[in-house]
Nucleic acid binder design. Structure first.
Ligand SMILES: [Mg+2]
Length: 228
DNA sequence: GCGACAG
DNA sequence: ATCTTGTCGC
């Protein structure tokens, strides 16, 4: 798939937010279930190997079968260590390199991290969406910012994630009696539709299938070239 | 100044 | 993200 900028730092965060709003007004957003969505993508990255190289993976699954139809990987050295709030700048280069190789343009991309639920309201999912002009959903395993009321233990339960008086996403119980996932819009999608699509792709597990498959692919790429 | 803090 | 095998609970 094609990219519209090469890196997140080709544009300032405030400019990026404005551009994102413009696009939201002129481009179709992700339909609520069960409309014509056919391809779901997932992205993830491996830990660094001994020489500092990480492997990124982009996978495409068909919906609603959730069967994988394409897998691409890329490798590179992140520009700096993990710093909360700056994950976009660390992970984007390798993730975009993997994404760029996809022949299938997905209808929505699942991201292992936050979207709107970010101190500056522009997390990794927002960057990836803007750079690819594709709807994205941030689906993280833990909270970066914000808080929520406790939610019922059954799968499907969800509660708004709020930060400084703003609704930035939701805590979503994707499976019975497990810790919730933290879902926030990345690009061209709203909170409720994000929740819907996360719940529609979790096949009874905690993680959405696109993210799971991407994690596996990145891990395979990691240990195939390394020993471990 | 202190603590919190996606991966 | 990692340190880490078997083990407990649904
Ligand atoms: Mg990850």
């Amino acid at each position: 798939m094609k990219l519209h900028h090469l890196h997140p730092w080709d544009i300032s965060t405030s400019q990026a937010r404005e551009l994102q709003k413009e696009l939201a007004g002129s481009v179709s957003t992700v339909p609520a279930l069960p409309d014509k969505v056919r391809y779901l993508a997932g992205l993830d990255i491996s830990p660094a190997d001994a020489s500092g190289v990480v492997r990124g993976a982009a996978v495409v699954l068909e919906y609603p079968s959730l069967e994988p139809v394409e897998v691409k990987t890329a490798g590179g050295k992140p520009p700096f260590p993990y710093i909360p709030g700056l994950l976009s700048f660390r992970e984007s280069p390798v993730l975009l390199e993997a994404l760029e190789q996809l022949e299938t343009h997905p209808d929505v991309i699942y991201i292992d991290g936050q979207g709107l639920a970010h101190p500056r309201r522009f997390g990794l999912a927002c960057h990836i969406g803007l750079l690819t002009r594709t709807p994205t959903i941030g689906c993280a395993k833990s909270i970066l910012v914000g808080s929520h009321h406790e939610l019922p233990p059954s799968a499907g339960a969800h509660s708004r994630l709020e930060h400084k008086g703003e609704e930035v996403g939701a805590a979503v119980r994707t499976r019975d009696k497990v810790r919730p996932m933290y879902v926030s819009p990345g690009h061209l999608i709203d909170i409720d539709t994000s929740i819907e699509w996360v719940l529609a792709s979790c096949r009874g597990r905690r993680m959405p299938e696109p993210t799971r498959k991407a994690h596996e692919a990145a891990d395979r790429a990691h240990r195939s070239q390394i020993g471990s």
